[in-house]
């Protein structure tokens, strides 16, 4: 069934909230405003304000409240209006949500989803355009998911809601309106399982969230030039499905990793290290990374475009593996 990424998220939460009364949605403008990006459209009408909780603009406070509620047996879904605002809640996420199960010797659990859009949209400026997934992936005790398609978004969000751990679920503003086929009926997608989005024999590209589309477009063009690219979307960033990536690299011998976040200490650096450790002898060339530039996001359109990965850069990185300029 064709639907938008936004509708897929809406359906996932709606189905889960109908199934389990312990689940509630909390965040800024999730209720009567219908969600800043309309992801929770119709929720307050169906579930009422007790389960669709509008908050003041206090991310640390309401994220901490949700963690406490999870400790007492509820299953909160926290909507961050954007992942950038998650920085205000980082103490709660890193010092509490991620550690409480471990610090308590397993006595307490924090079943919690924190979701919202990350990455750049169009000219939102430096404070609203960040890709912070590497920060979250760095912290033991958190799971991190960044789906690229409506089908994956729905199946993974349902799995995240059913998980007994804090899960950071990163969406993208520019993905909300994109459409795709979503499986009929009840389904979930397991956390920690990558998917080969396009099969190929020559080069592997790993790309997630918005970057998947770039990778697929680049693969189409490269195919016309005789290079068959295999595109893998890890979908879950932590835990990472390394075996799927490594199996592909062993076949192709070449790897490009595409991420929108900053290059320095970015997620691609970790994926590259893991692949070097597991498949060094299979590589025919050094791994290539395509990343965002290490600058605060500029507002001006040409500057913003220059700061972000694009199809041309992905193609250039693939060709560099062959020593082609």
């Amino acid at each position: 069934m064709l639907m938008s990424y936004r509708e897929a998220l809406n359906q996932a939460m709606r189905e889960e909230m109908r199934r389990d009364s312990r689940i509630f949605l909390i965040g800024e403008e999730v209720g009567y405003y219908q969600g800043a990006f309309k992801v929770s459209k119709g929720f307050v009408e169906e579930f009422g304000p007790q389960r669709v909780v509008d908050t003041p603009i206090t991310e640390a406070g309401f994220t901490g409240l949700a963690i406490g509620a999870a400790m007492a047996g509820l299953h909160p879904i926290v909507e961050l209006m954007t992942m950038n605002f998650g920085i205000l809640a980082l103490d709660q996420i890193v010092n509490n949500a991620a550690k409480i199960h471990y610090m308590s010797g397993g006595q307490l659990s924090v079943p919690l989803v924190i979701r919202g859009p990350g990455s750049a949209a169009h000219q939102l400026g430096a404070q609203h355009s960040q890709s912070l997934e590497a920060w979250f992936c760095h912290v033991p005790g958190l799971k991190v998911i960044a789906p690229a398609t409506p089908h994956d978004a729905k199946g993974l969000l349902k799995s995240a809601i059913r998980d007994n751990n804090p899960v950071i679920f990163i969406e993208a503003q520019l993905l909300y309106g994109t459409k795709g086929n979503v499986g009929d009926g009840e389904y979930t997608i397991p956390i920690g399982v990558a998917e080969v989005k396009r099969a190929g024999r020559d080069v592997t590209i790993v790309a997630y969230s918005k970057m998947l589309q770039l990778a697929l477009e680049a693969a189409d063009q490269l195919s016309r030039e005789g290079i068959e690219v295999e595109v893998i979307d890890p979908r879950t960033l932590n835990p990472l499905d390394l075996p799927t990536i490594v199996a592909s690299v062993k076949k192709t011998g070449r790897l490009v990793i595409v991420e929108e976040g900053w290059r320095y200490c970015g997620l691609g650096a970790q994926i590259a290290e893991s692949v070097y450790a597991a498949a060094f002898d299979y590589l025919d060339a050094p791994i290539q990374r395509v990343t965002g530039e290490d600058v605060p996001m500029p507002y001006s359109r040409p500057l913003e475009d220059a700061a972000l990965p694009d199809k041309a850069r992905v193609i250039e990185a693939v060709k560099a593996l062959y020593g082609v300029q």
Binding site: A60, G61, F62, T63, G64, L65, A66, I67, G68, A69, A70, M71, A72, G73, L74, D91, Q92, N95, N96
Partner: peptide, 13 residues
């Protein structure tokens, strides 16, 4: 940092 957690426990009950 734990004061929001307390409000959450109370929210849950």
């Amino acid at each position: 940092g734990h004061i929001p957690l307390a409000t959450g426990l109370a929210f849950a009950t």
